[in-house]
Design a protein around this nucleic acid. Structure first.
Length: 115
DNA sequence: CCGCTGACCCTAG
DNA sequence: ACTAGGGCCAGCG
């Protein structure tokens, strides 16, 4: 009667987190981009932007998941290395109408915040 | 069990 | 404007 609480909670939390990340990323509209930090905050974790990347890494290869629209706060395509090819990420973004400033995305113009 | 690593972000000097 | 360091949670050797 007194036990089992801790164990259950821990397991549930981790799965729930993963689910939310995929859901939010999948909701990113075409022609928009968001950041790891924004997603992390939308989920409820204030400083766990790294976990967002971790979740995406586990889901890498899923064509239904526009992980190329997820970038860092600086507008840099930090996750390009985990794609099939480093250039693929930029190609996809440019194809959707995202503007680039040098090697970085014009995040100020295309930023989309999950609500 | 301990420690390192990671698709990040913030604060301080 | 740039560099350095700490914090965060989860996975892996």
């Amino acid at each position: 009667m007194i036990i089992i609480k801790k164990n259950m909670k821990s397991k549930k939390s981790n799965d729930d987190f993963f689910k939310k990340v995929l859901k939010i990323v999948g909701k990113i509209p075409k022609g928009k981009v968001t950041t790891y930090g924004e997603i992390a905050q939308a989920i409820g974790l204030k400083s766990s932007a790294r976990m967002v990347g971790w979740a995406l890494n586990s889901a890498a290869g899923d064509d239904s998941l526009p992980c190329h629209r997820v970038i860092n706060r600086n507008g840099e395509l930090t996750g390009k290395r985990h794609f099939r090819t480093p250039e693929l990420m930029r190609e996809l973004l440019e194809n959707e109408g995202i503007e680039f400033l040098g090697d970085k995305v014009n995040i100020k113009k295309h930023l989309w915040r999950p609500k």
